[in-house]
Amino acid sequence: MYAWIWRTLPFGRWGKVLGAALLIAGLGLLFWYVIFPAIDPLLPFNDVQVTPGTTP
């Protein structure tokens, strides 16, 4: 999979390096700002944090 991505990136060696860096940064930002905030409330250790006795 990664070999395929590397081969498919255009513009020679430095183009590939730049493309890879952009891909990593783009995916990283996507996860950090979109996906993680969305799944964070769904995680078990964030459940019913502090309301003793009351289960919503």
């Binding site: 999979m1 990664y2 990283g28 996860f31 950090w32 993680f36 905030p37 964070d40």
Partner: peptide, 28 residues
């Protein structure tokens, strides 16, 4: 090979999530 690469990628994503839980949420 693809399966292995996907698993490694998922591992890195989980690591990134752990960092987010500390620093990302603090910023928010």
């Amino acid at each position: 090979r693809v399966l292995g690469e996907i698993l490694i990628t998922l591992g890195l994503v989980v690591l990134l999530f752990a960092v987010y839980e500390v620093y990302g949420k603090t910023a928010i």
